[in-house]
Design a protein around this nucleic acid. Structure first.
Length: 672
RNA sequence: GCGCCCGUAGCUCAGCUGGAUAGAGCGACUGACUACGAAUCAGUAGGCCGGAGGUUCGAAUCCUUCCGGGCGCACCA
C-alpha cells in the first residue's frame, strides 16, 4: 500500500516537473521521512533542481506544491526545512485499503505478474561426503529465503542444489573406506544399508553422514601423519582415487556413488527440518559424462574467449583473460586464468562455464532426469545420464542467483567474464553471485560446546569454525540442542501440555530462532553464532517475533472472534479518521503504516538481494505492535466502534507478521 | 605485489539510489503486573560514523590517500 502511494506521488511529481519546468530528472526521489511529524512521504526534489532552475529551493518547493493541488490518497503537501516537500496521506483511506489487501481473496491477486521472470537459485551445494555443519545452514537458509521472496513477488523460480559428487572431498572418504578400513564395495553397500536402518530407529546420529564426518577427519589426518615417503604415496592414492571416480565405470566410482548418494539424502533430510526444499540436483558426474565441457570448449574457442598460450609459464595451456586485465597485445599475459591444462584436462572454472551456459540455456545439451526425493507435495529431481520420460525441464533461466560464500568471488567473476566475452552480456548482467560471509561461534558458545579455548581466543569477537583446529558443529546436532533448550522454556510455562505438544512448539521455536538469527545480519557480515542469543525471548530474535504473534492470537481467542472477521468488519466502517487523528493515536497510525509497507520492503530486498531487510521489517512490526499493545487496552475498550478498530489493528498486524515470517521460512505457534 | 570486503554507542549490528536532530538490540542504571500472556513495555546514560584531504546547497554514504582488520589471487576441486 505504501509502495503504491510512493509510486503515485513520484509519477505525479514527474508530470508537474515536466509541465511546469520542462525538466525530466532521471529519478524523482520519494523517501520516508525520519519522523512522522514530517508526514509519511517526502521529496527533496526542489533541493536538487535549485541549481538547474537557478531558483531558491524553497521557492521551487512552493511552486510545486501549488501545482500539485489535490492528489488522490493524499491529505496535503507542505514545504519544510530547506526546501523539502512533505506529503501527508489520507489516513482513513490508507487504513481501509491496507485492511482490504490483508483479506484473503485480495491478497492472492495482489502480486500476479503477467509475464513472470524465470529465475534459478542455486544454494546449499554441500560436498556429499559428511554431515552438514552450521556454515552450510547459513547458505541454505539465505538461499531458501530468497527463493521465497522471489516467489512472493511472482517470479517463477527453480531451486537447484549442485552436487560435487566427483570431487576430492568425496575421494577422501572413499580412500577412507577402501584403504584405511579396507572395505569392499559390497561391504560399503551393506554398511550404507545398515546405517539407514539404524538411523530409522536410533535417529540421525547413527546415520551415514555422521559416520563419514569422523572418517573424513581421520583420512585427512592420515595423509599427513606418515613418513615423507608414505605421505607421498598416500597423496598419489588420493589423486588416483579422484581420477577413478571422475572417469567412472569402476569399483572406486561405485563406492563414491553409494556414499555420495546416501549422504546427499541425509543433507536433504537435514534441510527439510527447516522447511528447505529443492527442485533439481545437478551433479558433477553428469557434467563430466555428458561432456558439457566439449560443447562449451568449442564455443569458447570460436568466440575467441580462450586462446592457446605458446609462451611463458602457461605455455601449452588454453587460457582466458581475467576480468579487468590489461596487457599490451604483443605481451604475454602471465596472469591469465588457465582453463585447459597442458595435459589436456579441464579446470574447475572451465566446467563451471559449461554448467552456466546450460543454466542460461546456451549450451545446446541437457541433463537426463530422474526422481530422487519425495516431498509432501512434489518431487525433487536429480541429474542422470539416461533419464526417464516425461520429466520437467530445468535450466534456460533468465536470471541466476548463486548462493556461494564470498571467498569464491574470484572464480565466479571468471565465469561471468567468460559469458561476457562470448557476447552473452545480458546473461552476464543477470548472473548474481549471492555472496555471504562465514558463520563462526562466540567464544562462550564454543566453550559451551566443549572446545578448549586459549586466553587469546576468549578475547576474540568470534571463533572461526575450522577443521584444522577441530571446531565444528553438525547442523542436526545444533538443531537438537536448540530444541532441547526451547523445550525447557516451554515446559516451564505450560506444565499441563503433553510431550507431543511441547515438542511441536519447541521445534517451531528452535527452527524459527535459528532461521531468524541467520537472516538478521546482512550478507557480508560475519555471524558469531550463539545459541542463547538466538533463542533469547528478548531483543531482535525469532522467539520475540513469534511471541508477538502468539499474543495477538491469544487476544482473538479471548475476544471470541477471528482476525479475518475483524478486518472484514473494518471494511464496512465509516469515519475511520476519528481513530487516527487523536494525540494518543500516532502509534496506531505508525503500526498501520508499517503494516502497509510489505511490498515496498519486498521490492527493496529483491533489488539488493538482501533478505535481512525483511527480517528487520518483521522485527519493527512486532516491536511497534508491542508498543501499541501496552498503550491501548483492546478487550476492555468501551467505545464499540473503537474496539472494532483496535481489533482490526491487531488483525492486520498478525496477518502481516505471519505473511512476512512465512517469507523468512518461520512458522509461529498458536501459543508458546 | 594486485584485487575484493570491512572499520558507526562498552558489545553485536542497521542506516534504502548522498538529504531533515546518526538508529536498533544486548549490557548498565530507573520505573511499570488485583486489566487482553511481564518470553513484555516505558525511560536515562552512552557516538569528532578509523584518520586526513576533496566533490556537493548537503557526506556515515561518492572520490583520493593513509592507518587498522578479514579474505581471495594454482596447470586443487
Amino acid at each position: 500500500m505504501y509502495l503504491e502511494s510512493q509510486k503515485q506521488l513520484a509519477e505525479t511529481l514527474r508530470d508537474v516537473l515536466q509541465n511546469k519546468y520542462g525538466v525530466q530528472p532521471e529519478n524523482v526521489p520519494v523517501e520516508i521521512p525520519p519522523d512522522l511529524k514530517f508526514g509519511e512521504l517526502a521529496t527533496p526534489i526542489a533541493l536538487q533542481l535549485a541549481r538547474t532552475l537557478r531558483k531558491a529551493p524553497k521557492v521551487i518547493a512552493q511552486e510545486i506544491v501549488a501545482a500539485l493541488g489535490t492528489v488522490d490518497g493524499f491529505a496535503g503537501f507542505e514545504v519544510a526545512g530547506a526546501g523539502y516537500i512533505n506529503a501527508r496521506l489520507e489516513r482513513a483511506a490508507f487504513v481501509a485499503e491496507t485492511a482490504q489487501a490483508a483479506l484473503p481473496k485480495i491478497a492472492h491477486t495482489h502480486f500476479r505478474v503477467a509475464n513472470p521472470p524465470h529465475a534459478l537459485v542455486e544454494h546449499t551445494s554441500i560436498n556429499p561426503n559428511k554431515a552438514a555443519h552450521i556454515g552450510h545452514l547459513r547458505n541454505a537458509i539465505l538461499g531458501d529465503t530468497f527463493v521465497r521472496l522471489l516467489r512472493a513477488a511472482g517470479h517463477k523460480v527453480d531451486v537447484q542444489n549442485y552436487i560435487d559428487n566427483t570431487g576430492v572431498q568425496v575421494a577422501d572418504v572413499v580412500v577412507g573406506f577402501l584403504h584405511l578400513e579396507k572395505r569392499s564395495v559390497d561391504e560399503v553397500r551393506a554398511l550404507v544399508a545398515a546405517c539407514e536402518q539404524r538411523a530409522a530407529t536410533e535417529g540421525h546420529t547413527a546415520a551415514i553422514d555422521y559416520l563419514c564426518w569422523d572418517l573424513y577427519a581421520r583420512t585427512s589426518q592420515w595423509y599427513a601423519e606418515g613418513t615423507a615417503e608414505e605421505n607421498g604415496a598416500r597423496k598419489k592414492l588420493r589423486y588416483d582415487t579422484l581420477h577413478a571416480i571422475e572417469h567412472g565405470g569402476n569399483e572406486t566410482a561405485e563406492v563414491a556413488e553409494l556414499i555420495s548418494t546416501a549422504v546427499l539424502k541425509r543433507h536433504l533430510e537435514t534441510m527439510l527440518r527447516l522447511g528447505i526444499e529443492y527442485d533439481f540436483l545437478p551433479r558433477e558426474s553428469e557434467i563430466l559424462h555428458l561432456k558439457f565441457w566439449e560443447l562449451a570448449f568449442e564455443q569458447l574457442k570460436q568466440k575467441g574467449v580462450l586462446y592457446f598460450e605458446t609462451e611463458g609459464k602457461n605455455k601449452g595451456c588454453w587460457v582466458m583473460r581475467r576480468p579487468g586485465a590489461e596487457t599490451a597485445a604483443d605481451e604475454v599475459d602471465e596472469d591469465a586464468k588457465v582453463i585447459v591444462r597442458s595435459n589436456g584436462t579441464v579446470t574447475y572454472v572451465g566446467k563451471d562455464i559449461a554448467y552456466h551456459l546450460w543454466k542460461f540455456g546456451l549450451l545446446g545439451r541437457d541433463f537426463g532426469y530422474q526422481p530422487f526425493f519425495r516431498y509432501a507435495d512434489r518431487e525433487c529431481w536429480i541429474s542422470t545420464e539416461h533419464g526417464v520420460e516425461p520429466h520437467p525441464h530445468f535450466g534456460g533461466a533468465q536470471a541466476i542467483y548463486n548462493v556461494i560464500d564470498s571467498r569464491q568471488s574470484d572464480p565466479q567473476a571468471n565465469v561471468i567474464q567468460a559469458l561476457r566475452g562470448m557476447g552473452y552480456t545480458e546473461q552476464a548482467d543477470r548472473y548474481i553471485h549471492f555472496g555471504y560471509e562465514m558463520v563462526a561461534l562466540t567464544p562462550s558458545y564454543a566453550a559451551q560446546l566443549g572446545y578448549q579455548l586459549s586466553e587469546e581466543d576468549r578475547a576474540r569477537p568470534y571463533i572461526e569454525i575450522s577443521g584444522r583446529k577441530g571446531f565444528g558443529v553438525k547442523a542436526d546436532d545444533l538443531m537438537d540442542l536448540m530444541i532441547q533448550a526451547a523445550k525447557a522454556e516451554v515446559v516451564k510455562r505450560h506444565a499441563d501440555w503433553d510431550e507431543a505438544a511441547v515438542m511441536a512448539v519447541a521445534s517451531k521455536i528452535a527452527y524459527g530462532a535459528l532461521r531468524y538469527y541467520m537472516l538478521r545480519f546482512t550478507r557480508n557480515s560475519v555471524i558469531a553464532f550463539d545459541q542463547d542469543m538466538a533463542l533469547s525471548p528478548e531483543g531482535e530474535t525469532g522467539p520475540y517475533l513469534m511471541y508477538a504473534a502468539a499474543r495477538i492470537r491469544s487476544i482473538f481467542r479471548k475476544a471470541g472472534t477471528a482476525p479475518e472477521a475483524a478486518l472484514a468488519e473494518l471494511a464496512g466502517m465509516a469515519e475511520l479518521g476519528r481513530f487516527l487523528t487523536g494525540a494518543d493515536d500516532e502509534d496506531i497510525w505508525a503500526l498501520w503504516l508499517r503494516a502497509g509497507r510489505r511490498s515496498m520492503v519486498l521490492e527493496q530486498a529483491i533489488a539488493t538481494s538482501e533478505p535481512a531487510y525483511i527480517a528487520k521489517h518483521a522485527f519493527q512490526l512486532a516491536q511497534e505492535f508491542s508498543n501499541f499493545y501496552h498503550n491501548h487496552h483492546i478487550l476492555t475498550e468501551e467505545d464499540a466502534g473503537r474496539k472494532k478498530f483496535l481489533l482490526a489493528t491487531a488483525a492486520v498486524t498478525l496477518h502481516e507478521l505471519v505473511t512476512v515470517l512465512a517469507w523468512l521460512g518461520i512458522e509461529s505457534p498458536e501459543a508458546m
